[in-house]
C-alpha cells in the first residue's frame, strides 16, 4: 500500500466518523436546554466545516492514489482554499460558540 492510499483511507474514515458525530450531535440537541441552542448550533457548524475540509483532503489523496493528474491540480488549489478558509472558519465557529456560551 502506498503513502497516498494510506492517507486516503485515514481521511475517509475520519470524514465518515465526523459525519456520524454531526448526526449524533443533532439528535442530542433535543435533550439540551434551549438557552444553549445558539452556541450548540455554532459548534455543529464548526464540525461541519471540519468535515468539509476532511472531504477535500480525502478527494485529494484519492486522486493521488488513483493517479488522476488532470483533476489533481484543481484539488491542490481546493486544498489550499480549505486551509485558508474552512479551517479558520472551523476555529471561528468554535470561538463564536464559546462567546455564545459566555453570554448565557
Amino acid at each position: 500500500m502506498t503513502f497516498e492510499t494510506t492517507l486516503f483511507i485515514l481521511f475517509l474514515i475520519g470524514f465518515f466518523l465526523l459525519v456520524y458525530t454531526i448526526i449524533v450531535l443533532v439528535k442530542r440537541k433535543e435533550y439540551e436546554n434551549k438557552r444553549i441552542f445558539p452556541g450548540y448550533n455554532a459548534l455543529v457548524f464548526g464540525v461541519i466545516f471540519l468535515a468539509l475540509s476532511f472531504l477535500v483532503k480525502t478527494l485529494k489523496f484519492g486522486f493521488l492514489a488513483f493517479k488522476e493528474s488532470l483533476i489533481l491540480d484543481y484539488m491542490n488549489y481546493f486544498d489550499v482554499a480549505t486551509q485558508i478558509v474552512l479551517l479558520p472558519l472551523f476555529a471561528v465557529s468554535l470561538f463564536v460558540a464559546m462567546l455564545l456560551f459566555k453570554e448565557i
Partner: peptide
C-alpha cells in the same frame, strides 16, 4: 493532522454516541 484529527474524531464519535 490526519492521525490527530482521526483519533479525536473517533473518540468524539464514540463519546457522543454513548452519551446520547
Amino acid at each position: 493532522e490526519s492521525i490527530g484529527v482521526i483519533l479525536f474524531s473517533t473518540v468524539l464519535f464514540i463519546v457522543s454516541f454513548i452519551e446520547f
